[in-house]
């Protein structure tokens, strides 16, 4: 019987692969570090991987990144699980990251989280049934002067009130697109990234 080469014979899952643009970008980034130290590129490449593969890092994705960087898979798991921006479980198209620390908290971040929970009908850490939003609380995002605030993709939404926050969420819902920290357009057109 013919084996499907796009499927792993171990896990039965589909092999993952970057798009051509993402792969070119990844190789560009790897060249920024001293020879033989390409592992240094792991963080930017994992960001790109999240943008490429629905906002989260599956074992298959991490194994792929390991082969790309020529390192052991465990080295990728160790790193990916250390940094809070990497999602190791599936997430919604739009991950809402609400700052919960210090000044934002002083300015009502807790109320903001409750408001979003109520509006979306989910609890912190959960994803809406339609797969649109995941709600996360995160630590200080360095936007304390414009508290309370939240981050969606690369965009900071600042000086939030309930009304403003609700409108922002509606806008994302209407667009219905996947939003990642490293925006897909920036992967496609990465000519502004030198070398």
């Amino acid at each position: 019987m013919q084996q499907d080469s796009s499927v792993s014979k171990y896990s039965g899952k589909k092999h993952v692969k970057f798009s051509d643009e993402a792969l070119a970008l990844a190789h560009k980034i790897m060249k920024r570090y001293p020879e033989g130290k390409q592992k240094s590129a792991i963080l930017p490449i994992l960001h790109i991987a999240q943008a490429e593969f629905e906002g989260w890092l599956s074992v298959e994705t991490m194994d792929y990144v390991a082969t790309l960087l020529k390192i052991q898979s465990i080295e990728v798991y160790e790193v990916a699980s250390f940094y809070s921006m990497f999602n190791l479980k599936p997430v919604g198209k739009c991950v809402i990251e609400v700052c919960r620390t210090g000044p934002c908290w002083l300015m009502g971040a807790e109320d903001l989280v409750r408001f979003i929970e109520k509006k979306l009908g989910i609890k912190e850490g959960q994803t809406t049934p339609d797969g649109m939003f995941t709600l996360k609380t995160v630590e200080c995002l360095a936007s304390c002067g414009t508290a309370p605030m939240m981050q969606i993709g690369e965009t900071y939404h600042e000086n939030l009130t309930f009304e403003k926050c609700g409108a922002v969420l509606d806008e994302y819902k209407n667009k219905g697109e996947q939003v990642s920290h490293w925006r897909k357009e920036r992967i496609k057109h990465h000519s502004d990234i030198h070398r």
């Binding site: 960001h47 940094y83 993709g153 965009t155 920290h181 925006r183 502004d192 030198h194």
Partner: peptide, 16 residues
């Protein structure tokens, strides 16, 4: 920091 992806790209542009 990774959260400042917007500023990351501003810097990339400035460096270019």
């Amino acid at each position: 920091r990774g959260e400042m992806m917007f500023q990351y790209h501003i810097l990339e542009k400035a460096i270019q």
